[in-house]
Design a protein around this nucleic acid. Structure first.
Lengths: 312, 312
DNA sequence: AATTCGTGTTTGTCCAGGACAAACAAGCAG
DNA sequence: CTGCTTGTTTGTCCTGGACAAACACGAATT
């Protein structure tokens, strides 16, 4: 039970702050100030790594590093509530009581109880309502709780893993899609959040779309290749808040360019809420919109059953 | 359908080669030689990114970059067969015919057919044989095929995603564990491969162990915290070939230090095959060993049903 | 009073080139 | 053929400089 110390590479892995940023903060703000080993290389004590993680968490909420680093310790609890981030499904008047029960089970680390409670709700409400009224707000709440420090990282991981299982199970139980449209579901490298994709898949599969789940972290060129190989009508990507928003517009333009023109590109998730989508990219700010867009696609392509028009 | 160009950050994301390495190769070997934009920043054409991915793939097989970069194009197919990597379950005289059928389904991008075929085998053979004789060698083969370039990245992703679903489904169908030992299953940051963890979970859950699946990519300090919170008897980590083996020994020592002394630390996966495990860390080179070790743990802890001895 | 438009500050990322240790290969001695 | 020493390869770390995009603030305008 010792407190280990970290190389700069380990800190980058564990906090998600790049080496460049770590060195720059040290230069500019005087924090973190790691010790040095015999070779002059940085060695970060565990306490500083912890603090860096707190700072990163608050930054994802919209706070700025300069002020965070200046604040001594009261930041930990005082700055916790996030400021001005009207994310999707907020103020949705959700069934908080039922949600709280689920959150409590996670907080008690009762994995079996949580899964059981989820499955019960799924059976009672049906998949669509389950996704929209239970899983989506729950994910939001867990994200908030994690950002506020009310949830440990591993509690969030446990929640995610168990919820994924229930969702996948539900999806597997659905009948096969109608073959149209063919929707390719994935995320780009550096974006590892799967839950959003699963929620979308559940809703689309429920409507009879043919979903091709490729997991997360597909290189751009591979996405375009996969779209061709699977003759996808739609490529759907998910982005979480943690995704570096700087790279987003350029990334989407590149992918749009790499895709065949008659393949639609849909993006969603909390990571795109502040984005102005480039031409040819459709942004979704709620799950409902996805279902509507699917219906719209269907009616727009009603006349042409299968064949692909000549591309390139 | 254009061919986009990439910033150095995008190349790092897509290839897994760090910015430092990319600049160093340019300096030393003269490849890649990106163009420069108006501001003097590197701009990599798609062709070079492709080649970098091929090189990275061959490096993971044990080839060395200096020679790879010198080789013009015949490397692509000629160097493909890997050299001297006796990974686990090799020469296992496996049911190749049945495997090939599954691989063919993936290659045809027949997701539904593949899932169906998997489930059929699962039902026929039972979970234990299914994991050991089907999933494990299949994963190995897909990895090889991917490294040889016979599989596209997205085909490997599709395989992984679908197999994960079948495995999770099977695990969900098992009765709850006996409560002992409590095994925490996860991986460290930068290690995102889930399949190995799921295979282990399936086998351990089958033996009645209480598995706590935390997904992948847990920061070190969080693993130790989670182990305490869940009163885990064993922490099991999985490492794939892609994991940077340089950091491994130090990482494991740190984690070992951070864990309570009466928590065992088990590691497995193809990423640890060349590792000499530090003190207090147990290395597994096959799935069978895990099952055996579980039995051994059980008999060693037979007398003391639940209570934890005083730690610190 | 609210909104638009500069303008200054904050902040992340990029660049270059130097240094070094760990991993590896090759040659030599037993 | 095996074990050791020596030279080469290779990744990572370091410093310090530069700049543009994002942001916050205040002034001018509707």
């Amino acid at each position: 039970m010792n407190t280990p110390s970290f190389t700069i590479a380990a800190v980058e892995r564990d906090t998600g702050l790049s080496k460049d940023v770590l060195r720059m903060w040290e230069r500019r703000y005087g924090f973190p100030v790691p010790e040095r080993d015999a070779h002059g290389e940085r060695v970060y004590p565990a306490a500083q790594v912890e603090r860096l993680r707190v700072i990163k968490r608050l930054m994802d909420q919209g706070h700025r590093p300069g002020k965070l680093i200046a604040t001594p310790v009261e930041e930990l609890s005082l700055l916790a509530p996030r400021r001005s981030r009207p994310t999707l499904a907020e103020g949705h008047a959700v069934d908080s009581a039922g949600q709280d029960e689920l959150l409590t089970l996670i907080r008690q680390h009762d994995a079996n109880g949580f899964v059981h409670a989820l499955q019960q709700r799924l059976a009672r409400q049906g998949l669509q309502r389950f996704v929209q009224d239970i899983v989506a707000p729950l994910t939001q709440q867990v994200g908030d709780a994690w950002e506020d420090g009310r949830f440990e990282v591993f509690e969030e991981h446990l929640f995610t893993e168990l919820t994924k299982r229930v969702l996948r199970q539900a999806i597997a139980a659905l009948p096969q899609g109608s073959g149209s449209p063919r929707v390719l579901l994935t995320s780009v490298p550096d974006e590892q959040h799967m839950l959003g994709l699963l929620m979308v898949e559940a809703l689309l599969a429920l409507e009879g779309a043919e979903c091709i789940p490729l997991g997360t972290q597909m290189p751009l060129l591979e996405i375009s290749r996969a779209a061709t190989a699977h003759r996808a009508d739609i490529v759907a990507l998910s982005f979480s808040v943690a995704f570096p928003s700087r790279q987003l517009p350029k990334l989407l333009e590149q992918l749009r360019d790499a895709l065949s023109a008659n393949t639609e590109l849909w993006v969603g998730g909390s990571g795109v809420s502040r984005l102005v989508p480039p031409a040819g990219v459709r942004r979704f700010s709620s799950l409902e919109q996805g279902v509507e867009a699917l219906a719209a696609w269907r009616s727009a392509h009603a006349g042409q059953p299968m064949g692909r028009s000549t591309s390139t």
